[in-house]
Design a protein around this nucleic acid. Sequence first.
DNA 1: ACCGTTACCAAACGATCGTTTGGTGCAACC
DNA 2: GGTTGCACCAAACGATCGTTTGGTAACGGT
Lengths: 213, 213
Amino acid sequence: MVANALKRGPELAAGAIRTKRKDRADRWPELVTAAAELFAEKGYEGTSLRDIAERLGMLKGSLYHYINGKSDLLVHVMREAHARGLRTIAAQAEGEGRAVSLLETMVEAHARYVCTETVFTAGFIEARKHLPPERAQEFVLEERAYRLRVEALVARGQAEGDLREDLDPKVAALCLLGFLNSLHNWVRPTGVHSIRRICDHAVALGIGGMRCR
Amino acid sequence: MVANALKRGPELAAGAIRTKRKDRADRWPELVTAAAELFAEKGYEGTSLRDIAERLGMLKGSLYHYINGKSDLLVHVMREAHARGLRTIAAQAEGEGRAVSLLETMVEAHARYVCTETVFTAGFIEARKHLPPERAQEFVLEERAYRLRVEALVARGQAEGDLREDLDPKVAALCLLGFLNSLHNWVRPTGVHSIRRICDHAVALGIGGMRCR
DNA sequence: ACCGTTACCAAACGATCGTTTGGTGCAACC
DNA sequence: GGTTGCACCAAACGATCGTTTGGTAACGGT
C-alpha cells in the first residue's frame, strides 16, 4: 500500500477546545451503552458498526481496537445487563419471611429495573435474541437459576397457603417473568405514569392473580 | 381489481400428477406466510429477500412481481395478523353480561390465538416494530380501539364492583395486553404444557390480580 | 391455432455491510 | 528528548443487500 504519509491536511478545527484524549476505561462503557441503545432502537441487524462508531465520534474500523467483531457487542451488552439487572434483582430474593413477600420484593425490584432502564432492557432482549447459542452458554445457567428461584418461591408460597394450589409454578413463573420483561415496550421513564405507580401495578397484577381467594 | 368471476379450468382434479402452475391466488398467501415465519425467526433486517424467495423456490428478483419493495411485506404481514387475530378476538368482546366475564372471554381468546399461532404472532410483533410510522397509520386506529375496549371493560368491571378500584384502567390494560403478547416468547404449540392449561393460567394471572379481594 | 398475459428467470446495478491493513499523532515514560 | 504504546484514521476488501431490467416459457381466452 502506498504511503499517504505527508499529505495530511493541516486542519484541526480552529479554536476547538481540546479535551483530554479518551482512554480505554472511558471508551469501553460508552461503547457498550451506545450498542445497547442502538440495538434497542433499530435492532441488532438494523444497526451498523458505522452507526455505533458515529455515536462515539469515530470511524467504524476503529471499533476493532475494542472488539473482534460485531457479535462481541451482543455478548458485552448481555454481560452488562446481567451485571446491572439480573444479579441485583436476584439478590432481593435472599432473606427470610414468607415466600409471597419475598416474591413481592423481587417483582418490585424487577419491575423497577425494567421501567427505569427501558432502553438497556430492550437492548438486552434484542441481544438475547441474536446471540448464537454457543456464546449464550455463559448466560443460560444464570438465567435458568433466576427462573427456578421464582418457580421455587411460587411453590413455597403454595405450600405456605398463600398462593393458589391449582397453578403450575413453572407456567406461572414463565408468565410472570414474561410479563415483567414486556413492560419496557410501553413504559417511558419520563411518561405520564410514575414509575412508582407502574411498579405497584406490576406487583398487584403479577402476583395478585396467584393469591388464594 | 378484476372480478375472477367465472372460474376454474375444466380439468382440475384429473389424476393431477402434473401440478398446475401456481397463480397469484396460490402464491400470495405463501409469500406472506413465509415472510412472517422468517421475520419471526431472524428478524426483519436479518431476513433477506433471497431467504424468502428460496423458501418459495424462486429467485429474489421474482418477488418484485408481487411486491414493490421489501417493506411491503411488513404491511401485508401486519394486515394478515390483524385479519386473523385482532378482529376475531375483538369480536369476543361483544355481547352482554358483566364486564369481568367479557374480559375473561377476551383474554382467553387472545391467549389462545397467541399460543396457537406463535410464529405468526412473533412475525407480527417484529413487523410492527419495523413498520415506518407513515405505513403504520392504517393500523394504529384499530389497535388503539382494541386497547381502549379493554380499558373500558376494566373500568366497567370496577364500576360493577368486581375489580379493584385502586387500579388505573389504562395501566392495567397495557400490562394485560403486554403480558398476553409476551406469551409467544416461550409457549410452543407442541410443548409439554397444553394450550388449554396455559390459557387457563393466562386468564387467572391476567385478570385475577385485578379482582377485589 | 393464435395471442396476450402471467409467473418467473438471469444478470446486472450501486450501495452498504463487516472486516482487514497500514499508517499517524498524542501522551506518558525513561 | 528520544522511544514506546495507545487511540484512532484512511482506505480498501469481498460479500451481500435491495432493486431494476429485459427476456421467456407456459398458460387461459378466443
